[in-house]
Nucleic acid binder design. Structure first.
Length: 942
RNA sequence: GGGCGUAUAGCUCAGUGGUAGAGCACUGUGUUGACAUCGCAGGGGCCGGGAGUUCAACUCUCUCUACGCCCACCA
């Protein structure tokens, strides 16, 4: 029973309906308690986010794997959720306040966080709705958020445990400070950019009348950051540098501040560079910090001349003149920045060494030498990062990295494509302590308390912290929150209920757990009332679905997320989060540029979905995803896959119009005709190739395989071949086989194009209780039928040869002709006898006579060993046929000659693989026969 | 400075140690009602340059060139 299809395929008309149907009926995770698990966790997009083209790629690939494994009968679970995205989300809400002439600091921490929650409730669902538009079959019934109570509990537990294990500690050192966002950020969040800047040279006068060996009373230093000289604490020279040996241990009187600072010997100073002497500002430069430490300065003594917004503030020795205080650290083209003022004062006082250029004999003096400077920027705030001395929390990443490194080395964890392994090792083996504290309000507040003396107590709750401290001590909770990636590193297992599955706490616990004890109780109640995902009765999700089977992510978050999941997963659960990590590239704009809002070349996936349908966009992503390469956006290609969907749609309409309905069997129906036996074999081969491609994570090969089967084999040949002659009906066998093949197509294509296939599946028969999404992946026991394959391929060759010949001779394609085959091969006799109707309709040969052709104009058609003669009786000029045959003769003659040369080469025959020799011989035989045949044909024409 | 990647038809991209493919574009043409979002036929490539290994290289090695990306403290 079928229901009629509309004339054309309209994606928009079916997508929403089917998605709703799947989701409402729980089909994204059908109850399969006894089935083998297959699990992927979705990289949680920022809750503030909206679907960009990269998400479309990432999620399409994941959905293909999930749908595929679901069809194969697995208990496929695709974990989905969103990330609270600390900085990004807080920025969004702050921007909204700004728009209303308001600001965060007008509110208490609690009230501001409540506002963020409110925003999340109102606007946070954008991306999850958009993922549905793409057709992603995630398990929404268990949607997660990184600040869900159970998730927050896990985060707190991890912090406390790692602290107790000595893997988290507090340290005072330089951090990457974002003066705009006023928070520390991690190394990974710093992006180095090349900026055109300047390089200034200064004289630092020697104190106490000391002179250099060359008689000078000053030391020359150079810098790209003059303003930091206000906090200089030393000048360093290389220990072996003769020029300065006599002044090591002596002092310099710093201009402007008059600070008396020592001259140190330190390996850091490079004698080859500039003057060989370098100014040391331990509080504002990572290298200088190390030099300072070696010189015996404690971090607490290092001078700090900037406030949190990187404006100049007084150093602890009080030596910075008032005129500098409060100035911006630098500000281009203005004197109101500290940088300009320092330069100006030094110049006035004669401490600036001008940079001299000579052009056309003309000497010009400049304040500074122009120079390209590698400058650090914050990836969120977009301003220059300031190395700043603060107390922060650090994770001992080097320790945690050990096991993951081993896991990848041993192959326990496979990175696909393998070329990323080197990058992975390089980063992991040189990993630095991970700064995880952020000076923000939105996020998981660090469970650490301080007493009045600054002593630290880390515990899950304030009560527990108090219990560790003096009972009378007044404890203050750390104000900082954790890096977002700290919590998302727990995603593969915390989403499954770790550490307890099912979650043990109830609603009442929220005020005490969930990221905040007491003082921040309001961080919790505004969301999910249920307190975590609903576990199915008796289901141990963690045991069944962890480790996951695969992770798919963009290579851009290999360090941010993937590596950290490996570190956390391995340490906390003792297992790798997944055995396989697939990294895909970036989706680029059509011109190859990276998409960015500022360039205005961002392609909106939803626009593409509206234009061509989600299926087409998905198929594009799959077809273009070859391992390890970026994808260039190409609308034309998306359009092509829309056409592909239409093609299938119309093939199905054809089936319907001819009583070809849903298959009643999983197994291939019994078939006697060659065409039917052939197509069954093609299904078998297609499925095998598809299975292999997906096992190898070759999405492009998989997509290409099903595409060509559908379009070339099924539509272009099979359907044409089975069409019965005039007025005749389809035989029962063909109807059964065609219906079965179409069903297999729908199943095999479903992971790539879920919507159109589900629609067609439903239209092919009354299968309301058997939707395609949970149908069964084909497992035909049929084998490829070699005889049928040879027969149909012979038929196809004959047809193609006839068409090409007619085309070249300008004979209308519809013309039916008679053919003569004087000395038919057995193969020819069999095929011709068994496919009368097809030969007439497809090859347009009305009759084949097994006898010599009558004299007269004719064209020659070669198929394998057989040579057809097709009389044309004045339809064509002999010259055209001659030239056609001559062209073909030349091609074969050239091939034959080349092969002959190879075969007469003793080295080739002796050393080449036997198969290669055999093939060369066969090819030579074929081309020689062609030469003979065509020569004879030409002779016949005179 | 270190590492990685890419250079194949006009465009976007596959590809294998045995002589090169797809989609789109292009040219010609339209045969029975699935489909013009289509069918059929066709043109088009010293597979970035050079050297080496091999009977044989687009495919392996080295090198050069161009482009891209990542990591790194050159003041």
């Amino acid at each position: 029973m079928t229901s009629e299809l509309s004339k054309t395929f309209d994606p928009a008309a079916i997508e929403q309906r089917w998605y709703q149907h799947w989701e409402d009926n729980g089909l994204f995770r059908p109850d399969r308690p006894d089935a083998e698990a297959y699990t992927i966790v979705n990289p949680p997009p920022n809750v503030t986010g909206s679907l960009h083209i990269g998400h479309a790629l990432d999620n399409t690939l994941q959905d293909i794997m999930i749908r595929y494994e679901r069809l194969r009968g697995k208990d496929a679970l695709w974990v989905v959720g969103t990330d609270h995205a600390g900085i990004a989300t807080q920025m969004v809400v702050e921007r909204q306040l700004e728009a209303a002439q308001d600001k965060r600091t007008n509110y208490s921490r609690e009230d501001f966080i409540a506002k963020v929650w409110q925003w999340k409730e109102e606007s946070g669902g954008t991306i999850t709705r958009q993922l549905r538009r793409l057709g992603c079959s995630m398990d929404w019934s268990r949607e997660q958020f990184t600040m869900d109570p159970h998730f927050s509990d896990a985060v707190m537990k991890v912090f406390v445990d790692l602290y107790n294990d000595g893997l988290i500690y507090r340290d005072k050192r330089l951090v990457n400070w974002d003066p705009k966002l006023k928070t520390a950020i991690s190394d990974l969040e710093v992006e180095t950019q090349e900026i055109k800047g300047s390089f200034w040279h200064f004289r630092y006068p020697l104190a106490d009348g000391v002179k250099l060996a060359n008689g000078r009373d000053y030391i020359q230093v150079a810098t790209t950051r003059p303003e930091t000289m206000l906090a200089d604490m030393a000048v360093a020279v290389h220990p072996t540098d003769e020029r300065y040996a006599s002044v090591v241990g002596k002092f310099v009187t710093l201009p402007i501040t008059g600070r008396r600072i020592p001259i140190l010997a330190d390996e850091h100073a490079d004698p080859e560079l500039g003057s060989g002497a370098v100014k040391i500002t331990p509080g504002h430069d990572f290298n200088d910090f190390e030099v300072g430490k070696r010189a015996g300065f404690a971090p607490g003594e290092m001078l700090n001349m900037l406030d949190a917004e990187a404006n100049v503030s007084q150093t602890s020795d009080g030596l910075i003149p008032d005129e500098f205080l409060g100035l911006h650290r630098f500000r281009k083209d203005k004197v109101d920045g500290a940088r300009e003022l320092v330069v100006q004062r030094l110049k006035e006082q004669g401490f600036l060494i001008p940079h001299v250029t000579e052009q056309d004999g003309e000497r010009t003096e400049h304040d500074a030498e122009p120079r390209t400077i590698q400058t650090p920027f914050g990836d969120r705030g977009g301003v220059v990062i300031e190395p700043w001395l603060t107390d922060q929390w650090y994770v001992d990443a080097a320790q945690l990295a050990k096991k993951p490194i081993e896991a990848v080395k041993s192959g326990e964890v496979e990175i696909v494509p393998k070329s990323w392994e080197k990058t992975f090792f390089n980063w992991m083996e040189n990993i630095q302590p991970w700064c995880v504290s952020r000076q923000l309000w939105w996020g998981h507040r660090i469970p650490a308390w301080f007493n009045a003396d600054g002593e630290i107590f880390v515990a899950l709750t304030e009560e527990a912290a108090q219990a560790k401290a003096d009972p009378d001590a007044v404890l203050t909770r750390d104000n900082d929150v954790l890096d977002t990636w700290f919590s998302s590193a727990l995603w593969p297992f915390a989403t499954l209920g770790w550490p307890n599955d099912p979650p043990q706490h109830g609603v009442g616990d929220h005020a005490q757990h969930g990221g905040g004890a007491g003082s921040v109780g309001r961080e919790v109640p505004l969301h999910l009332p249920s307190g975590g995902p609903p576990p199915r009765s008796g289901e141990d999700l963690l045991a069944k679905h962890y480790p996951n089977n695969l992770l798919i992510s963009g290579f851009d978050i290999l360090f941010f997320w993937d590596a950290r999941m490996m570190m956390m997963g391995r340490h906390l659960t003792g297992q790798n989060p997944w055995p396989r990590l697939y990294l895909h590239g970036l989706v680029r704009a059509a011109d190859g540029q990276k998409m960015s809002k500022s360039k205005g070349n961002v392609v909106d996936p939803l626009g593409l979905i509206e234009q061509y349908g989600a299926d087409a966009l998905r198929f594009f992503m799959a077809a273009m995803e070859s391992q390890g390469r970026d994808i260039k956006m190409d609308d034309r290609r998306v359009e092509g896959y829309r056409n592909f969907a239409t093609k299938l749609w119309n093939a199905t309409r054809f089936c319907q119009a001819n009583g070809i309905a849903a298959s009643t069997t999983l197994e291939a129906p019994a078939a006697t005709s060659a065409v039917n036996r052939w197509i069954i074999g093609e299904v078998v081969e297609t499925q095998a190739k598809l299975d292999q491609a997906l096992a190898d994570l070759r999405f492009d090969t998989a997509a290409g395989t099903i595409y060509h089967f559908v379009w070339d084999n099924f539509c272009d040949w099979y359907i044409e071949l089975i069409k019965p002659g005039l007025g005749a009906n389809f035989d029962a066998e063909t109807k059964a086989v065609a219906g079965w093949v179409l069903d297999q197509i729908l199943v095999m294509l479903h992971p790539f194009m879920p919507f159109v296939t589900e629609e067609l599946w439903s239209k092919q028969g009354d299968r309301a209780d058997y939707p395609l999404i949970t149908a069964k992946w084909p497992e035909p026991r049929a084998k490829v039928d070699a005889a049928a394959k040879a027969e149909v391929e012979w038929l196809i060759a004959l047809t193609s040869a006839m068409r090409a010949a007619k085309n070249e001779l300008g004979i209308p394609p519809g013309t039916k002709l008679e053919a003569y085959l004087a000395d038919p091969s057995d193969a020819a006799k069999t095929v011709i006898a068994g496919n009368q109707s097809a030969i007439e309709r497809i090859a347009r040969i009305s009759a084949v006579h097994f006898e010599a052709a009558p004299d007269g104009a004719a064209m020659q058609i070669g198929v394998g060993a057989d040579s057809f003669v097709v009389p044309l009786a004045g339809l064509v000029d002999i010259e055209a046929e001659k030239s056609r045959l001559t062209k073909a003769l030349e091609v074969s003659a050239k091939e034959a000659k080349s092969l002959e040369g190879r075969l007469s080469n003793a080295n080739f025959v002796d050393r080449a693989k036997p198969e290669a020799v055999e093939k060369a011989k066969a090819d030579f035989a074929h081309h020689s026969a062609e030469v003979e045949r065509l020569t004879a044909a030409l002779e016949r024409l005179g």
